[in-house]
Design a protein around this nucleic acid. Structure first.
Lengths: 239, 239
DNA sequence: CGGGCGATTGACTTTCGTCAACGCGTGTGG
DNA sequence: CCACACGCGTTGACGAAAGTCAATCGCCCG
């Protein structure tokens, strides 16, 4: 990794609660500094880790935006997730001690690298930390079950609608609008994530715009009618 | 839960290594008995847990076969996995302390229920146990990434082929044939898991049979040509 | 032996993918 | 500062894949 990095002081970090449990005693907080967490800056387009890299650390996003994905032997790429501030990356590496996929920054970003071995040690000493880590993994499992539901049983338009509403919900929780968003990823990346082709994504945006449900200008999307975005017919649709 | 159950003595269990790390010292093995693990028998068709149930324990399958799934508000059911002996269920419950899906036995089965709180305690004391638990969760995350790849980028026939080969591989690792298997689930359940309709599953079985790649009699499947099952054209396919 | 669930098969429809052409914007280099 | 080029996005025509609806079959269990 050739990126700028500095050692962080978590006990004084303003975003600490996104990485770690909030209910630590002050005396326990200083323990976080022993984790040797490093802050790493990643420029847009660069890899945070690649498929097959040795697994040494988990990452939490401080700022910016990432995609994770994996590739088949045939060269096809599948996007498995998009991560924004406060979200964790790298959990897939624990089992084999190698990353089983790659992570790429979709805009200039900053992450905290948490050395896994030290995190494991600390979570043996602090039950709250252990619980936090277990929940992060469990949350990821639940999220992926929901993705299986989406990919396995929804139509393309429902998938896109669900995706947009999920994105805007996560952005809203971070203080952004609950109806407007700027997509950090291409149509092809959205399509890969949602199991459809980029042309289908584009056509759906057009259709939803024509129906007055969305306003789309390039990557800027405004959700005009969240109700109708998910099949709620509201009243008679005037064709 | 109204099923027969007994308290297990893990230190003497012949299947211990499927639940727990093999490299425990004898002095540490007896600690397993303090977990108050219970063996539970579940009859075919019964629930091990249901969506929304309080989460108290993780489960490992001792014998039998399970499906896990979740349901949408619209009543649609999505199968999220099939589990056989040695595999773990319930990890989705950690994050909210409620199960986020259900688990149903597809044949008469027996599981070990591992009280989560005690397991967490023990894994704070035994690093090998902690590592084992983390790996189980990470493995589940990796598995689901691969399911996203399958659902998002493969055609129906590739999905079914991948599924059958995965099943037979897991069965083979347990001492069964590497070319024959008995499906414990219906066509509808396979279809739900693989993101297709039961008619499509049935048609694919018929097509693969006609092509001499499979032999299918009800739920008994014999893989005649594993190479061709995954697009390997071998030589000229004689149509 | 009979009933019912599960599986198969057919005909038709719909959705989405494929291939191709074109347009728009952004960023870069002359 | 402008022009151009390339990546990204849009749109259309067509075709292939899978879904839907429906009828029938057959196995298994009671």
């Amino acid at each position: 990794m050739t990126n700028a990095s500095t050692t962080a002081t978590c006990s004084q970090c303003t975003q600490r609660d996104v990485c770690f449990p909030v209910d630590l005693e002050p005396s326990q907080r200083v323990r976080l500094d022993q984790l040797s967490i490093r802050r790493i800056r990643i420029k847009r387009g660069e890899h945070l880790f690649r498929d097959g890299d040795a697994f040494k650390a988990l990452f939490t996003v401080r700022s910016g935006f990432f995609k994770t994905g994996l590739a088949t032997e045939t060269g096809h790429e599948q996007v498995t997730g998009f991560q924004m501030a406060g979200e964790m990356l790298g959990l897939d590496g624990i089992v084999t001690e190698r990353h089983m996929g790659s992570a790429v920054a979709l805009e200039d970003s900053e992450v905290c690298a948490i050395p896994y071995t030290r995190l494991a040690e600390l979570s043996r000493e602090l039950p709250a930390m252990q619980q936090h880590l277990h929940k992060a993994m469990s949350r990821e499992i639940v999220r992926e079950h929901q993705m299986m539901l989406l990919l396995g049983s929804m139509r393309a338009q429902e998938r896109l609608a669900t995706f947009l509403l999920n994105l805007v919900k996560r952005l809203h929780a971070r203080g952004f609008s609950e109806s407007e968003l700027v997509l950090r990823m291409t149509r092809a990346e959205i399509g890969s994530y949602l199991g459809m082709k980029l042309e289908t994504v584009s056509r759906l945006f057009s259709r939803l715009t024509q129906e007055g449900i969305l306003t789309v200008h390039q990557r800027h999307v405004c959700i005009a009618d969240a109700g109708r975005l998910l099949g709620h017919e509201s009243q008679a649709a005037i064709h």
